[in-house]
């Protein structure tokens, strides 16, 4: 992740442009920060077993007495919600990126959207809306 970021900066300073292969590599790195965070979290969680608070509280003593069926149910619920949200998030990211491309192709700028009262509070500007209808 750091290498890609550093190399991308260096390349842009030298050549003043982003070639397609570098942009594709950046897309591929989208979840690298997330993976790094999770990996660090795994290391701390697993590394301090069998304690929940090192030397103070054992994991076995802190486990809940709620029926395990309930826990499984809520875990399944959270997992399915987060899966759906992940799909929605990624597709929305691409929609927003494509929208920006269309705005550029039509020589519109972000400032056009911001001056539009409908855009205040995250609303969709009329120009943007018309563009979507055209597409």
């Amino acid at each position: 992740m750091l290498l890609t970021a550093g190399f991308g900066c260096w390349y842009f300073v030298r050549k003043n442009q982003y070639p397609p292969w570098l942009l594709k590599a950046t897309i591929a790195m989208t979840f690298s920060g997330w993976v790094a965070t999770l990996a660090g979290w795994y290391v701390t969680e697993i590394g301090r077993q069998p304690f929940l608070v090192s030397g103070v509280l054992r994991t076995a003593d802190a486990a809940t007495q709620i029926p395990s069926g309930n826990i499984a149910l809520s875990l399944a619920m959270y997992l399915s919600i987060y899966f759906l949200l992940l799909v929605a998030y990624i597709s929305t990211l691409f929609v927003m990126a494509h929208r920006a491309i269309r705005l550029e192709a039509n020589n519109l700028h972000v400032s056009d959207m911001q001056t539009d009262p409908a855009a205040v509070g995250g609303g969709m500007s009329e120009k943007q809306f018309n563009l979507e209808k055209q597409a």
């Binding site: 929605a88 929305t92 809306f129 979507e132």
Partner: peptide, 9 residues
């Protein structure tokens, strides 16, 4: 709340 304005209409 956040997605409704950013997702496709």
């Amino acid at each position: 709340f956040d997605f409704r304005t950013k997702a496709p209409s």
